[in-house]
Design a protein around this nucleic acid. Structure first.
Ligand SMILES: [Zn+2]
Ligand SMILES: [Zn+2]
Lengths: 574, 574
DNA sequence: CAGGCATGCCTG
DNA sequence: CAGGCATGCCTG
């Protein structure tokens, strides 16, 4: 998320004793302020006075991430309408997947601000939250508020999920925000399929893809507003006032203390990227399709860090750390089993990620969540290397390994984040690589790739078992005989057309239904060719999906192709 | 194993400084004494002087169970020939499965004696043993010496397995014992299939079934000799002398310090047994066939302890503890993951077995292996209960639960041992219940019961999936040639399968002619997609020609594809 | 390393 | 709670 502020607006918040908070906003829209005192009954929560007046007390038993009573929680809905909550007790849970990302404002006794949006499945860690968790359950398809105890926003309204008997959990209304839009431009939360965060703009909407893997949301107006809210506060006594300077200051320093994101960026203009070259007989495997490394625990993989130098030359470091894809700011710790069996040096021992390069520094603590205080490895990039490389790119090989498996971590998906930093800790570039640490990397990769298109292992094995086809099946007949509303172009019909001196073989066929569906039939001289041809179809379809984003038709089609491939693989010449 | 000594023989061992040990035996046979100084090379170990003279130094880097330098290790072969080793360092490993069982002689500074026979797979726990383990590997089908670093006896000779490179592991000869039989009657080690220990006798041999689940071996002459060796020693200074009295004394006291066995017995004459009644809606299940309880972690099960009173009445306790079926005297500890997550009272926390009855005492330590010093729960049996029961039996219900799963324990099978004890710790009766602590008790029970009769899950699911194809199937129409030569796989066949999104649409088709030609039919949602897909086919075909050189088939095919593309371009929705 | 099983866990 | 998947681990 870019931190440049181009517009100004003004919000003031006053905190009195007892965490009473009032908010005023100097732009054209009034500001939403929620008030809740949840008691975990099934009764709908009372509506929030809207707009609330200054001094309304906010009580939020449900908060995002680590929250103290000094913290303020800001949730936003798809209209960028905001709700600020003040927690009534210190607590912790991991809620990483929010539409707006989670941001912490650092400074002298400043309350932290966090933005919750999409909501996600949460892992409650405190006893308090455990208790709440036991009282809550899934409330819907992750639209706004989500599993367990979460807050979210949907359809112009804010919701809080809660349940005290784990059965009739419902989405609880905690206030509507009509006419309280913080931001002039509404945006729409969308969930991307492959977990890629992209931002599209159209004249009327800034589309924000709500990504379940915790990527920071990038959006034009929204991002601006969020950053203003988060970073524009400047404490003077109990009075926080927005000003543009604080944003800029924040921009420059303390990036390391920000919670991690899973975006790739090259803010520093270094064209930073990694190059992962899979050796012939490697102990790991890489899926291009998923941008994901599959590797066994305690196996080393080499990865090249490549970037273009900027002048003036400065010492650069490579920081690498692990995140959960869906709980980006959660700590990623080794399991007790592997930890207790490891006799390595304590600092090394606690790190799930190891770098075998000399001069590697192990940073962070078990509680650290920010980039600078979570467990990470920091490798000084050799200055000698700068000149040693081909063309204008600088390249250095690093060797990493992992000391736990994803199965140790509750089977949660992980990403490995590489940050190119200067010595003051400014992040010049960031590149993310998804990682699965498992016992059978190749198997799991194949499985994942199949699942990408819904082509499960199950269907494959089903296909395997098809031993004799039901041959009184009339499907073929139906299709080979063109129907009335079906235009069919086959060899015979085309004979009159001197289109090409070549014509298709008798059994090749192209037809088209009124709905626009095109039907193609062709033959291949043998199985190998057939499979190669199908593979090319799959490649093209997959590439098309990757390039043009989500499309149900494309996915279905790709899926069908994969099934066709499986069937073809199993079909042998009589 | 009965401890009554009916024959006498005499062995004397002298220990001088530095663990030098000499042995003489007053029966007709001379005694074998091995000498080793293993250094983990691949070279065969030097033969042991045979018979050794007094004062020979024994150095055994491989020992059975917990061994201190004060301990003496006695291994025996199938001719009941014995070898005594003195370890040169304190160490620990779990080697439970021995032909002769493992026995510890307790007393004032008495060295422990352990008998190793069959050898088995060992779990090395000390750093020292870890090191050794990394240097060793399987050396054969568990005849005498076994996996890893073990000693055993086979074919009248003693062997020690060792390997320093994990490859060419070989059984190392550590001495032959011809003419050194300790026991007049030879016996043969046999491995029983189901892990049941049985003893057969024939006129010439005492057959001892070497059981891989650690059951104590029962054998006539051998047992006698073993007990003589183990329990007949009586310390006077550094001189141990066998006498019958010490056996009897040992018989009466200190049973609790013996390593556990998995035998059922009622030595005290109390007709002690347990009664496990499975409630209708129980959270556990019991397999009568396998005498095995299947239960989830942290779920309580009730079990009745029943016995007949003996006069004079005395306070009785019920002791319960877990053992590994195949490593009976190993410690059974909670895994680090569950242990570290448990906030219960330390004593309770470490115990994998919990008893919910009031007044339960938690005994033992994490190192303890004997009945009295391993982790166990001890429940005083209420005297009030004695009269309260029907008929002549006394019955008391106990509630137990487990705090780890078998999967936590390396998936090793476990048995729960119930001992009826008097207050001096004399074991009056013992009953064993196999237990599997798992997430899906019912499933696993069914699986185990099926496996018992060789009717595996696989067969079952295969049987399920076999869907008899219609014999009068007809070829797909598009497959012009004789029907029976043509295999066609399409959607219709799959319709029966409960899979929805994962089979091909009705009009998709793959078929194959006897000539090996593959015919593919598929649809695209619109013309654009159709053309893109055809282009990919063309690209692949062209690439294939470029790569693999000229091929008439390929050229024809490519040409056809180009025609198909042209047709498709001209074909519009009606 | 592939095939297959064992077994925790998720989902309906 | 059954069905099914995910995933470590064993075996050939
Ligand atoms: Zn681990
Ligand atoms: Zn456990």
């Amino acid at each position: 998320m870019s931190l440049q502020a181009t517009r100004s607006s003004s919000i003031s918040m006053t905190f009195t004793q007892n965490n009473v908070c009032s908010v005023t906003r100097t732009n054209s829209k009034t500001f939403f302020l929620g008030e809740q005192n949840l008691n975990w009954t099934n009764e709908p929560l009372p509506h929030t006075p809207n707009p609330v007046t200054e001094g309304t007390i906010l009580q939020a038993p449900v908060v995002v991430n680590t929250i103290n009573t000094n913290d303020r929680l800001l949730i936003m809905n798809e209209n960028n309408e905001a709700c600020v909550l003040t927690p009534t007790c210190n607590t912790t849970f991991n809620a990483l997947d929010t539409a707006a990302g989670i941001h912490t404002l650092h400074g002298n006794n400043l309350p932290s601000f966090l933005i919750a949006g999409g909501g996600s499945r949460n892992d409650y860690t405190s006893d308090y939250m455990q208790d709440i968790k036991s009282k809550t359950t899934l409330i819907g398809p992750n639209m706004g508020a989500a599993i367990g105890n979460d807050m979210g926003a949907y359809n112009n309204e804010f919701f809080m999920s809660s349940n005290n008997n784990n059965t009739n959990c419902q989405r609880q209304y905690i206030g509507n925000t009509a006419n309280n839009s913080v931001c002039g431009q509404p945006f729409t939360l969308q969930r991307s399929v492959a977990g890629q965060a992209t931002a599209e703009e159209n004249p009327h909407q800034t589309v924000i893809n709500d990504v379940s893997n915790g990527s920071t949301v990038v959006g034009d107006d929204f991002a601006m507003e969020a950053m203003e809210l988060l970073q524009g506060f400047n404490k003077s006594g109990n009075f926080l006032h927005f000003n543009e300077q604080s944003v800029l200051r924040h921009d420059i320093k303390g990036q390391k203390m920000l919670l991690p994101t899973l975006e790739n960026h090259n803010n520093g203009g270094y064209d930073f990227k990694y190059v992962l070259e899979e050796p012939k007989k490697s102990q790991w495997t890489y899926s291009m399709l998923l941008n994901k490394l599959y590797i066994s625990m305690n196996k080393t993989f080499n990865i090249d860090m490549e970037f273009k130098l900027q002048l003036p030359l400065e010492q650069l470091n490579l920081r690498a750390f692990l995140c959960f894809k869906t709980e980006v700011s959660s700590v990623v710790l080794r399991c007790a089993n592997h930890l207790s069996a490891d006799t390595a040096h304590p600092k090394l021992r606690e790190s799930l990620l190891r770098c075998n390069n000399p001069a590697t520094q192990y940073c962070g603590t078990s509680q650290g969540r920010g980039i600078g205080d979570r467990y990470s490895v920091l490798v000084p990039l050799s200055l000698d290397m700068y000149a040693m490389n081909q063309s204008d790119g600088v390249r250095q090989t690093l060797a990493f390994e992992f000391t736990c498996q994803n199965s140790c971590l509750g089977r949660k998906e992980t990403s490995l984040v590489f940050c190119l930093e200067n010595i003051s800790g400014k992040i010049l570039g960031q590149q993310v690589l998804d990682v699965k640490i498992c016992a059978c990397p190749r198997r799991d990769r194949n499985q994942d790739e199949r699942n990408l298109t819904g082509f499960t292992q199950r269907i494959l094995s089903l296909g395997k078992r098809v031993e004799a086809p039901s041959q009184n099946d009339k499907t073929a007949v139906d299709c080979s005989t063109p129907k009335r509303h079906c235009l069919s172009v086959n060899n015979k019909q085309e004979k009159r057309k001197p289109l090409n001196k070549n014509h298709m073989p008798a059994k090749w066929q192209v037809s088209c239904s009124p709905t626009g569906t095109y039907r193609l039939t062709f033959e291949c001289p043998n199985k190998t060719v057939a499979l190669q041809q199908i593979n090319s179809l799959i490649d093209q379809a997959a590439g098309s999906i990757v390039r043009s984003g989500d499309n149900v038709h494309h996915h279905k089609h790709l899926n069908n192709l994969l099934v066709m491939k499986a069937f073809t693989e199993r079909l042998n010449t009589c």
